[in-house]
């Protein structure tokens, strides 16, 4: 994918990323096929921006995020990351020993704050652990000081340091997870559904915190989510995935008001609008998401697509840049007029 943003080099560039999981069967565990969890994914994230990665369950958004962090070894492709020193490294092929220092620059916020905090460690140990493991900060006082600073940063009182996670509510726990992710001053933070396990009234608090931290610390976010209203609120650009492939990438406003891929448009119209006066707008998509182990021919979306023609079932479309920063993978991209959110006609 060409980097079209002038004067700025992307912080992260993913090229042709693939992650296949083998399906093994029989006594000898012969490989009989592959689950193409991530298939030919191209994306980039500029420094200081938030890229949203959306799609329904099983579309490969979490697998993509995990490959970028090298929590999973990708099958193929390049993950080019520009380190703080200005070097561009390929995370995908880096030897294990060189991945660890990179952890300082990329961190993750997990979905479920009830599962991602060790119940037997207190806050001090949880938040200080990355410093101990990666940076080798042996001095306990130094760590304590830094943890106090981090807790203040995420809006928790440093006096809580000796407490254990069970004493905190979901929203507070997510703040702890964020504090831990920030312990090493990362530049890229991968947030995998950071608010979907939280109550509505607490979601807004955590989203605001993430926005404030981004401003203060000049963070770059990869924001994985399925909730489109949250994505619209927080992201600068959005990538939509379907069965392991990217169908559309565009600046947030463009994607929501002028979607170019029928799947994006269908996704938009499926979001329940919090207004009882806009009801007829919901036009559900027929059918179900196909399995990535046995995807349909041609364009993966064609069996459910209301605009499909013959070519759609025969040839897979390529991801094409139709206007600056707007990438779409659809055969009929230039013919279709699609409505944006809740049937609101496209408006600039």
């Amino acid at each position: 994918m060409d980097n079209t943003v002038e004067n700025e080099q992307p912080l992260l560039e993913v090229k042709d990323l693939k992650k296949y999981f083998p399906i093994r069967k029989g006594f000898f565990k012969k490989t009989v096929g592959h689950v193409r969890a991530v298939d030919e994914v191209d994306l980039y994230i500029n420094e200081g921006e938030t890229l949203g990665l959306v799609g329904e369950s099983g579309c490969g958004k979490t697998t993509t995020a995990r490959c970028i962090l090298r929590a999973l070894d990708p099958t193929d492709g390049e993950i080019l990351f520009r380190t703080g020193a200005g070097l561009v490294v390929d995370v995908a092929t880096l030897p294990e020993s060189e991945v660890r220092p990179l952890r300082r620059e990329m961190q993750m916020i997990f979905q479920d704050p009830f599962a991602s905090l060790n119940p037997r460690m207190n806050l001090l140990d949880i938040v200080a652990e990355p410093m101990l493991v990666i940076d080798g900060v042996k001095d306990r006082e130094e760590r304590t000081e830094r943890v106090a600073e981090l807790l203040r940063l995420v809006g928790l009182r440093p006096e809580y340091m000796q407490r254990f996670p069970h004493a905190f509510s979901g929203g507070q726990r997510q703040r702890i997870v964020i504090a831990r992710a920030l312990a090493l001053n990362p530049r890229l933070v991968v947030a995998d559904e950071p608010v979907s396990a939280l109550d509505v009234s607490v979601q807004a608090q955590v989203l605001n915190l993430m926005l404030r931290l981004q401003e203060e610390l000049h963070l770059t976010y990869l924001f994985v989510a399925h909730d489109l209203s949250v994505v619209k609120h927080i992201c600068d650009r959005v990538t939509v995935m379907y069965v392991g492939k990217i169908v559309e990438t565009a600046p947030t406003k463009k994607l929501f008001y002028q979607p170019k891929h029928p799947y994006t448009a269908a996704l938009m119209s499926s979001v329940p609008v919090a207004d009882p006066r806009i009801r007829s707008a919901m036009t559900p998509l027929e059918g179900d998401v196909p399995s990535p182990a046995d995807p349909p021919s041609g364009c993966y979306f064609h069996p459910r697509c209301p605009h499909a023609v013959d070519v759609c079932s025969e040839e897979p479309p390529a991801l094409e840049e139709i206007s600056p920063n707007h990438y779409v993978s659809c055969h009929r991209v230039y013919e279709l007029e699609l409505a944006g959110i809740a049937g609101i006609p496209a408006a600039e």
Partner: peptide, 27 residues
Amino acid sequence: KALLKSIPSVQSESQKFLPTIEGSIPH
């Protein structure tokens, strides 16, 4: 009122910070 204000909506114009309900649900 507070609950309705605190949800980000695909409809509304994005504002930078969402109005929130302070605190969390008591035990």
